[in-house]
Design a protein around this nucleic acid. Structure first.
Lengths: 325, 325
DNA sequence: GCATCTTGTTTGTCTAGGACAAATCTGGAT
DNA sequence: ATCCAGATTTGTCCTAGACAAACAAGATGC
């Protein structure tokens, strides 16, 4: 007798792989995580965790009564730090070999001590105090003051980076980050939704390839474009290549914006871009975001690389200067 | 020389496990998917896919030059249908044993032929045509006409269910569903954001346990509560139990709303609820959503079960009738 | 008849160790 | 400096087996 479900859960099942066990996420056992829970928390595949244990001797989880791996919280935190450094280009072999001192040095160095606006600093505090309402209104106030463009470029992005760093350092709970993401999303989506579309602006389709999550980054780009009147349609993250192609053809878009994080292999990115570019309606452009792509870009007809968020606006300017229609 | 990343990707890495391979998602090879891609698309673990192949003889992927599994699109679609029926309580053994006729019958039966408003029917069409702008304004119009509460209860929820069913039937691409989720999110978040908070209303914290994705459902609940003036704070999906506890204590919330989909094992849900209820500030309530929980609820002090979305509003009424402060 | 306990079956996830191709680093030649 | 060949690192996939939790069915008691 199947009991029917209340509401669909698929939109995320697609994007993430919704697992169904109970063991890996058993909510008891305070500081101890199963291998599946660690996979979820760190983004490292089970296979990778096991092979690291064999090759490098870390992590070194305990075992429960059934001989299954049990990871103490501190090891998971270390794994997160390692993951973060790897995302920045370091290789695991070096990281595991590094002395504790060197490792710490790398970590500190990685925390872009970039100029973080004083207000952003204050918001880190609000976040750590879980002061949701205060955070909400503070963000809103900043947005009012700075305007959408400056807010995104000079406030939201540095703040997001700082939060990522604080999280890797273990100074922030998962809940804090969720709270931040929610508030920021609410604010930006509401703002974007209310913006007028300027005539003569391009119609832009935004998304990422499969295996690209990174949803806040995409939202930032959308906000920048929309603030200049572009007609944006986002598919969120993780759209299969074939689907992007079809949607782009149907929708009559002028621009397809793809965002890539550092973790996405450049080879695959270029290969996908080539395929996408191959059967593009004439006049349609592709904008590919992601710093590591812009470093040594493959020359593909119809593809433009954006080295940073700010480049998005330059591309838009150029589009206006020479509309391909 | 680490190349630094533009923007943080963590908020989703947390929630999903961001993988880093290239093979599983190689964007070439039109109708053929690697095992990792199938895991992402169907939500079935690699291990499960392999063990099904051995035990039931399905799926039966091809092999590439390296002996690695390659799944044709049609098998993946079948897997999605199976997954959907399993979410409704069917067991795999029966499904694999069923004759094609019986299987088809189950599928049809599962597609809640529930009364779908004519306008919703029309929107399914818009979605399938990828008419993003038309969809956007149509949704907006519906929302204006019906008001937030009716819109959610009698329009958005049935529509979401219908979309889930169409997707399982293979009539809908991933992109269509992404498009829908995005538009709906934009609309609801913008609306919620603009709602006033009524004095004397409870402060509600919304989230789900780890392994619970289901973000649109949570957003629906938030919309309903907010439409009646409640002060809602959402953490999104997938918050670790410990984090929920801490946030709830800090934030001075009156209610914690947890949402569970059918795929979440009831045992684990009750166990988690008990832990959470144990050290709750006096006067704080827990509302647990999810039909399968309400069927045979474990009696836990401070926990109220919501059998359906509409129950959310009843609970709110009761709260107002007898404020626990 | 309805509830509770016991047993047998189904099912998902974990374990182990081995293999290999893609990505990266290294040194040599232009 | 730039480019190519070879060596090394590294992530993911493979097989095969084991076991506990979830479930179904039958037995027992009220």
């Amino acid at each position: 007798m199947p009991s029917s479900r209340l509401s669909p859960r698929r939109e995320l099942a697609t994007a993430t792989g919704d697992q169904r066990s109970s063991a890996e996420t058993r909510p008891d056992a305070p500081g101890l995580l199963s291998i599946a829970a660690v996979e979820r928390d760190t983004g490292l595949l089970k296979d990778t965790l096991r092979v690291w244990e064999k090759r490098y001797g870390f992590p070194q989880p305990l075992r429960d009564a059934n001989g299954e791996r049990i990871y103490p919280r501190e090891q998971v935190e270390r794994l997160r730090q390692i993951r973060r450094l790897m995302d920045q280009g370091h290789r695991p072999g070096k990281l595991f070999a590094a002395s504790p001192t060197d490792f710490a040095a790398l970590l500190v160095q990685s925390d872009a001590p970039a100029a973080l606006p004083a207000e952003a600093q204050r918001m880190l505090g609000l976040l750590q105090a879980s002061a949701a309402d205060a955070l909400r209104s503070a963000l809103q106030e900043r947005l009012q003051t700075l305007g959408l463009e400056d807010f995104v470029l000079h406030f939201a992005i540095p703040l997001s980076i700082a939060i990522g760093a604080a999280w890797a350092r273990g100074e922030m709970e998962v809940a804090h980050e969720h709270l931040y993401t929610e508030q920021m999303q609410n604010l930006l989506r509401a703002t974007i939704n209310a913006l007028p579309i300027r005539a003569g602006s391009p119609r832009v389709l935004l998304t990422t390839f499969p295996n690209e999550l990174h949803s806040l980054g995409l939202l930032f780009a959308q906000a920048l474009l929309a603030s200049h009147g572009a007609a944006c349609t986002s598919l969120g993250a993780q759209t299969p290549l074939e689907d992007i192609r079809k949607t782009a053809q149907n929708g009559g878009f002028d621009v397809i914006l793809l965002s890539f994080s550092g973790a996405f292999p450049a080879r695959a990115a270029f290969s996908g871009l080539r395929i996408l570019a191959a059967d593009l309606a004439p006049g349609t452009q592709i904008w590919a975001g992601g710093r590591h792509l812009a470093d040594k870009p493959a020359v593909i007809d119809g593809v433009r690389y954006l080295a940073g968020m700010a480049d998005t606006l330059l591309a838009l300017q150029d589009w206006h200067a020479t509309p391909p229609s």
